[in-house]
Nucleic acid binder design. Sequence first.
DNA 1: ATGGTAGCTGCGCTA
Length: 284
Amino acid sequence: MRTGSGLTRRSLYHGAEPPPCLRDSMKIASFNINGVKARLPVLLDWLRDSAPDVACLQEIKSVDAGFPRAEIEDLGYSVETHGQKGFNGVAILSKLPLEDVSRGLPGNAADEQARYMEATVIGARAIRVCALYLPNGNPAPGPKYDYKLGWMDRLRDRAAHHLATEEPAVLCGDYNVIPRDLDAARPDAWRRDALALPRTRAAWHRLTHMGLTEAFRARNAAGGHYSFWDYQAGAWDRNDGIRIDHHLLTPQAADLLADCWIETGLHGREKPSDHVPVWIDLRA
DNA sequence: ATGGTAGCTGCGCTA
């Protein structure tokens, strides 16, 4: 399903990469790296080889001061982080200019978990990129599940704001949501898990039904595509995966969608994350 | 019903 988008345009430049201001392709990848310190060699190789224009990272598990900013800036990226000690933490890396960075999901002043940030990426079109790490929510029921559902309500409010502006916006990240049974290799194993409980899926469908387009499903109706494999019990070797990393697009962003794909090959490397990157290509 | 693995932290918690 992946196409050679941009090839025609690129040929006008005799094979050279066009300058950012003349491109009509903005590739945005969402990647839960499960610890930036442990994943730094994999992350740097990936930025060099796959070269996303924008990378939204989750679970950096680092405070802002501990983030390996210089190594990433050396590869041509602007770096914005929203970290905390030990857990969670998100970051936006961009080869294009970033403006109006905001940190935290509005709606609960008492929430101290670093799971959400936004920035405007200035390409041929300005795109509001919202990077999120939605709470896992296990065990359910319980206070962690209540926090997850409350967080999803607040995300819906934030999405409503972006829909009202009628600007192109992308809400991407680790949603910790298995939207449907075909998004799991063994759906029955997740039946009572916070990632797939009916209330979780109802909250997910409320997001999509308010007018957001799920990029992967807009391009591919088939099952068997996953973005996470548990480290335990040889889940990767058995392709016992789930699809929980998603891009949701406002209509103005969906109109720019050229492609969406999962970079499964990244799991083949040494010391992989338990997630792989999920990409969109926008005409922007 | 349990334990299997990984990362960060500091001998437990989160996933």
